[in-house]
Design a protein around this nucleic acid. Sequence first.
DNA 1: AAAATGTATGTAAACGTTTACGGAACTTTT
DNA 2: AAAAGTTCCGTAAACGTTTACATACATTTT
Lengths: 335, 335
Amino acid sequence: MPQVSIKDIARMLNISVATVSRALHNRYDVKPETKLKVLELAERLNYRPSSHAIGLLKKRTHTIGLVVPEIDNQFFSEIINGLENVAYQQGYNVMIFQSQNIYEREVKIIDQLIGARVDGIAISIGSSTLDFKHLNMLKDLDIPLAMFDRANDQVYGHKIINDNFEGGYKAGEFLIKSGRKRIAHIAGPSTLKLTRLRMQGFKAALRDAQMELRPEYLVHTTFRMEDSHQTALDLLSLPEPPDAIFAVSDYVALGVLKAARELHLHVPNDLALIGFTNLAVGPLLEPPLTTISQQSYEMGEETARILLENIESSDKDFKLQTRIFKPELVIRNSV
Amino acid sequence: MPQVSIKDIARMLNISVATVSRALHNRYDVKPETKLKVLELAERLNYRPSSHAIGLLKKRTHTIGLVVPEIDNQFFSEIINGLENVAYQQGYNVMIFQSQNIYEREVKIIDQLIGARVDGIAISIGSSTLDFKHLNMLKDLDIPLAMFDRANDQVYGHKIINDNFEGGYKAGEFLIKSGRKRIAHIAGPSTLKLTRLRMQGFKAALRDAQMELRPEYLVHTTFRMEDSHQTALDLLSLPEPPDAIFAVSDYVALGVLKAARELHLHVPNDLALIGFTNLAVGPLLEPPLTTISQQSYEMGEETARILLENIESSDKDFKLQTRIFKPELVIRNSV
DNA sequence: AAAATGTATGTAAACGTTTACGGAACTTTT
DNA sequence: AAAAGTTCCGTAAACGTTTACATACATTTT
């Protein structure tokens, strides 16, 4: 006997669906005897209310949609945890989707979330997304939107981001202070604002120290380790290789570390390395990775808080919020 | 102007909802002119069909529910990727949930998935789950179930698992062959069958080599690094500490590595270490981690394949499948 | 005895969508 | 000119649930 509905129960007990519904909700105006019969049968048949029926009837689904570029990335999975915990505490469910940084997938996911009538959406925009129609239409549909980590100024939504300029500056500054002269930067996809800001901060640090950035010391890669590994190999095989690298993220730094090992370069003696993110594996690497920390879990919590505040607010013109987290230097042994 | 329905469009164009529906589906029996008007208006108003309405009407949702203990674990996130890819290719959506190894959460998630009328469920059972009613009732409800990595014999469902006994045996065997004498095992939660099997395989290897396992060399921990770190500290502080450790998973091995470093023990000279999983960071550790590999991505793919085959089959008594992956020894430098 | 109150239940509409069935208004065939 | 076919569209039911409203009966109050 598959999925049972309230109608089935009503028929079996020869009562109306309304009474069954009332019994299941433990309303005061139903005879204890009837209540018991309904509850027992529902239990026996493993009755579970259809969320589709309820979602159709009520205007609210108590569900928020979450879109991340990729799930097998500790930074994002920690954000997911922070966000989920806050959401659950307030009685909301979270639907998780990954865009894989593919624009078409991102658009499709948003369409689906609208179709599922979620109460709000949290997203970290994919690196190949250059058109933001799919996100900006959420405003017309009255669906609150929060962007975390990867936000875009052209999009109407809350922003929960890092001070990437400052992070980049701190990374550059620390490498300079440690006496390195040939400092390179492996940047992320140039479409992302956070990439540009970290780069700008880094450049500013060099400028303030009256140092020059050689053009061949500035290269771009994706956040995937395989790509950054190849990029690092190329960079370290230059006629005059750098003696320090600021990697746009820890995952990229892992690729650099792998490349350095293959080229028999000692870190930090031959090459200083600094990452960005502060992954949990950082301290376990050899050498333990110096990095700029991002508070991923807290960013997830804050994203949920802002989004839920917007959802629960009756104010149709809820003011857009921007929350900027301060990145911090985590000194270990790779510099 | 918020969420628009087919009714709204019909009203605005002074036609019936049926015609609007037909136009949106590009049916042959609607005048091209009408079709155009509907499509234009739908586009302009950002119309997206309500998945609740459709889910209610049709019997199938083309959605499968996925339950993992935790998402911030590379092993599981790779499984998710494998599963999602196969599912998407066949036109199915995946709803991801984490139980955090908390029994109550797991039960709640299953209830929700039933309520959402998913077409099938894939789960890796949480370590605190001892009662399986919530899973076995899926059979009565005709909802196909597939268990991956962490399965249980008391549950009616497909199984996609590792040959954990063999994996444990291989780990033990390799440590013995490398000449170690005081071999310890840090096992996982004893509630999990995979824990017991890896342990039994390990013990069998010792037995076959006529070696004894000292009671104090067998300890349990969770898969969280913080726990395994403390466990390893205790183990390595014994009057006569082991000279080799087989860790039930790479995450646990990371904790051991951290402890060894703190106690100034050199791996592999003072302590040989072998893990289980084959995480991507393994080769980047110092020393690169020797481990038993699990084909996580492929397990995800296989889970999706079996589950979807069951879903698409009209056979009410679809036969239960068991797929056992063979673990392989990955030799690096930690032994 | 009539009126008022309380208790337990049923009726029906609504949410958004699809689709079987029917039919009106044409056009083509005989 | 009647018959048959084509084109286009509307009506209404169904999916599962909640809830305002109505109602029937029983009990209490006047």
